[in-house]
Design a protein around this nucleic acid. Structure first.
Length: 483
DNA sequence: TGGGGTTAT
DNA sequence: ATAACCC
């Protein structure tokens, strides 16, 4: 909790200490439940407080790690703690710790500008994402212990649907504990808490769970981060960023309009990206209020019904999208960018490097990719952002060799990749590439059904991994082999 | 602008 | 296969 404390937070200190006390109280309350405590169905419980049909109002937490890559680097090398630290990829400082931010370093700042602003800046190379990825999944797994419904967003953010957990805690709550219920962390807009409002109660319990999550992240992984608790993903995400490093905020429904109106531009709304913001601007829409009051019919005509309806709801703070459990990754990819690659041999060498790392990753995962994709970026002064790709199925005889140590699986896969390469790039003509990327996807779980069992005749040789298959992934070794 | 990810069309 | 979104 001490890692991220900044001067600007002096005023918050009392509140943070209160939060710590609240947590102790919450934990004491759990541990100290008297033996004769009434069960959920007994008259002493607060079951009556929870409306039956209230399943539409959810409690969602958004957990957002502080300058994640920099934190991982400081854990790897504690001598970096206390110094201004930047994580470098190519000529960019992609993120930096708060020491560096105080000295004017920003995310995605050019290395030259950063060094100019802050000559004492220590830089570490962050192009290899392995340790970040591993720590990222440790965080997700820790959160899954609280509730299995965890959705990843990048490496450093997670959503958790706390609705069920909150319901359970409320059913355990004694009526005399209700009046002592307190919030953990900040309340957005300093709004007053009303213990007669059932949603306030649920969100307070959510804030206590969020505090426990942050405590667990710090105690078990050494990581600090922010959390936002609200009734949907959009609001949880927006409110998590209100008090910034290592603090948490809960949004009560009566302040949701204040929150979304605090955005100075529609582009700041998660779900409205660069392209949509440009198109909105062309329609004269720049503020959240502009979007709220714009004609839905015209918006639908301009952006299509799907995008139009979704973003206009977002502008009112409405977001019904569920927290979708991410499960294991859908794809593994590695990429490298560079100033210039203009020969086939050069490309082949880089592709081999990317593939070698990928094969290690995919081997550790245990599932087998059935599709391989090669992506390139061509040099061009404009249209800077576009990439081209070619993909194809991986031949079954190659798939079978995957994960079987000494067999050479590199050669056939590099051959495939070079065919994809020549399909995109006319190697008889001069070319200039600035990026190569290899992706292994369409991952399928191994078939563990044994001969003679019902499963053997019912399960296809390889089961898909789309959504339903994800669940079975977790079961692959521990449970399936019992059959 | 890096080195990743996801879903929709 | 691309385009949009997210970090």
């Amino acid at each position: 909790e001490q890692l991220g404390v900044e001067p600007e937070e002096e005023a918050d200190r009392d509140e943070e200490e209160d939060a710590a006390q609240d947590m102790e109280r919450a934990e004491a309350g759990e541990a100290g439940g008297s033996p004769d405590a009434p069960g959920p169905e007994e008259p002493g419980g607060l079951t009556w407080l929870v409306p039956e049909g209230s399943s539409s109002s959810r409690v969602i937490v958004h957990v957002d790690l502080d300058c994640f890559y920099a934190q991982v680097e400081m854990i790897s090398n504690p001598e970096l703690k206390g110094k201004p630290l930047g994580v470098q990829q190519k000529y960019l400082v992609v993120t930096c710790n708060y020491e560096a931010r105080k000295l004017g370093v920003k995310k995605l700042m050019n290395v030259r500008d950063a060094k100019e602003k802050c000559p004492q800046l220590v830089l570490v190379n962050g192009e290899d994402l392995t340790r970040y990825r591993e720590m990222s999944y440790k965080v997700t797994e820790l959160l899954e212990e609280f509730s299995p419904v965890v959705e990843r967003l990048g490496f450093d953010e997670n959503f958790v649907d706390l609705t069920e957990m909150v319901e359970k805690r409320l059913q355990q709550l004694q009526s005399d504990e209700l009046s002592a219920l307190t919030v953990s962390g900040h309340v957005y807009n300093n709004q007053c808490i009303n213990l007669h409002d059932i949603m306030h109660i649920r969100l307070l319990v959510g804030s206590q769970i969020a505090a426990e999550m942050r405590e667990a992240m710090y105690n078990q992984l050494g990581l600090t981060g922010c959390a936002g608790v609200a009734s949907n993903k959009l609001l949880a995400k927006l409110v998590s960023g209100v008090f910034k490093p290592n603090q948490q905020t809960v949004l009560l429904p009566q302040s949701s309009q204040v929150l979304i109106q605090s955005l100075s531009h529609v582009k700041e709304m998660p779900g409205i990206g660069y392209k949509t913001a440009k198109r909105l601007e062309a329609l004269g829409i720049s503020s959240v209020h502009d979007l709220q009051t714009f004609s839905p019919k015209i918006l639908e005509k301009e952006l299509g019904i799907s995008v139009a309806q979704r973003i206009q709801k977002l502008s009112f703070g409405e977001d019904t999208s569920p927290v979708t459990p991410s499960g294991p990754p859908q794809s593994f990819s590695e990429e490298d960018s560079f100033k210039k690659c203009s020969s086939e041999v050069e490309a082949k060498n880089k592709i081999e490097e990317l593939l070698a790392s990928l094969l290690n990753r995919v081997c550790q995962d245990g599932r087998k990719p059935h599709t391989i994709r090669l992506t390139i970026r061509r040099y061009s002064s404009e249209n800077h952002w576009s990439r081209e790709s070619r993909q194809c199925p991986i031949p079954s005889h190659v798939i079978q060799k995957l994960g079987t140590g000494n067999c050479d699986v590199m050669t056939p896969m590099v051959d495939i990749l070079m065919k994809l390469f020549r399909n995109m790039v006319n190697v008889k003509m001069p070319f200039h590439l600035t990026l190569l990327s290899v992706c292994l996807c369409n991952l399928k779980v191994l078939n563990t059904a044994k001969k003679g069992t019902i499963d053997y005749y019912l399960t296809p040789l390889l089961s898909t991994t789309s959504r339903s298959g994800k669940r079975s992934f977790k079961m692959k070794d521990s449970h399936m082999e019992d059959f």
